[in-house]
């Protein structure tokens, strides 16, 4: 996968050129399951992004909720005239609207925290690999320390200190997740650092920042992409867990985890829909991301190159 040695352009152009990207796409498409996952994920993402235009109710506006419509079964008609497709929760919140808005939070937290953690973790991992010695020791011991605690415990402690809020959840997840990136990137970068193209760049006396980010980083990307997709799914699940435990988002702006928690106590009373549908949404989202991630891992793994 070395990008430094660009193959010479073929003299006669083929009708369909075999670029690395095209090869990547065709290999990815070999798995129908992964394509399905991708399709489902795109649908979910679109529904979440355009939620304000799709949903009949803004579930975060208390004035639009009516306590008298609380815990209605799916298909009931609201006082305002629209139908509660998936029923309502105990506050009279339309579950369909609540789920789409909840998905917005879940995706925002998942993708946002995975990106931030990737930036922090990658930078630290590259620094550790590039400079070695004391910097490496300090960063990698930090990583060890971080990974020795269960992530949910660390996240709980951070949120207990910071208080509720979407941004605080993102921050907590970044603190929990950066170590995975750092460790992965360092391992890849350690290998790449000994390659000739890095030596060549160093001989040219390029500044270290340029070598690190323009030469080393692009060659560490494949494992990074795989880790990132897995971490998005992990972050979504972790956010749901935190909200379920009542430490994540504010109670009037529920994410999927909080919606499940709200309905949990009604499960035994036969009012299944409050927990059930958000649970399904969470499950489908995480599975679709994982399907994509698994296929990415297979495609981008040089050992499996066919």
């Amino acid at each position: 996968m070395s990008a430094a040695i660009t193959p010479p352009a073929p003299a006669t152009p083929h009708p369909r050129e075999e670029t690395p990207f095209r090869r990547f796409v065709s290999e990815f498409a070999e798995s129908k399951l992964a394509l399905l996952g991708l399709g489902v994920f795109v649908l979910i993402a679109l529904a979440a992004i355009f939620a304000p235009w799709i949903t009949p109710q803004n579930p975060y506006d208390l004035a639009q909720l009516d306590i008298m419509d609380g815990r209605l079964p799916p298909g009931s008609v609201s006082g305002a005239g629209y139908t509660y497709l998936l029923g309502t929760d105990d506050q009279g919140r339309d579950m369909f609207s609540g789920m789409l808005y909840g998905l917005r939070i879940s995706l925002l937290v998942g993708v946002g925290s995975a990106l931030f953690a990737a930036v922090v973790g990658t930078t630290l991992g590259l620094l550790a690999a590039f400079f070695g010695r004391r910097i490496d020791t300090v960063i990698m011991r930090l990583v060890d320390l971080q990974l020795s605690f269960p992530s949910i415990l660390v996240a709980l402690m951070i949120l207990a200190g910071l208080g509720k809020g979407v941004m605080n959840v993102v921050l907590a997840l970044v603190i929990v997740e950066w170590a995975y990136y750092a460790r992965t990137v360092r391992a890849t970068a350690m290998v790449e650092r000994r390659r000739e193209y890095i030596e060549a760049a160093q001989c040219l006396a390029l500044p270290w920042r340029r070598i690190m980010f323009h030469h080393l980083l692009p060659n560490c990307l494949p494992p990074l992409i795989v880790i990132a997709t897995q971490q998005v799914a992990r972050a979504i699940a972790l956010e749901a867990t935190l909200s379920f435990l009542g430490l994540g988002v504010p109670i009037t702006e529920p994410s999927l985890g909080l919606l499940i928690a709200n309905g949990y106590q009604y499960m035994l009373s036969g009012k299944y829909w409050i927990s059930f549908y958000p649970g399904i949404a969470l499950l489908v989202t995480i599975i679709s991301i994982n399907l994509v991630g698994d296929q990415l891992r297979d495609v981008l793994n040089p050992r499996l190159t066919r």
Partner: peptide, 23 residues
């Protein structure tokens, strides 16, 4: 307790008192 203050929040909202609920 937390559900009660959410319900009160709905009702105050309706008379123009913008309510944030913080249990």
């Amino acid at each position: 307790d937390a559900k009660i203050i959410q319900a009160v929040g709905q009702m105050w909202q309706r008379i123009g008192v913008q309510t944030t609920v913080e249990p």
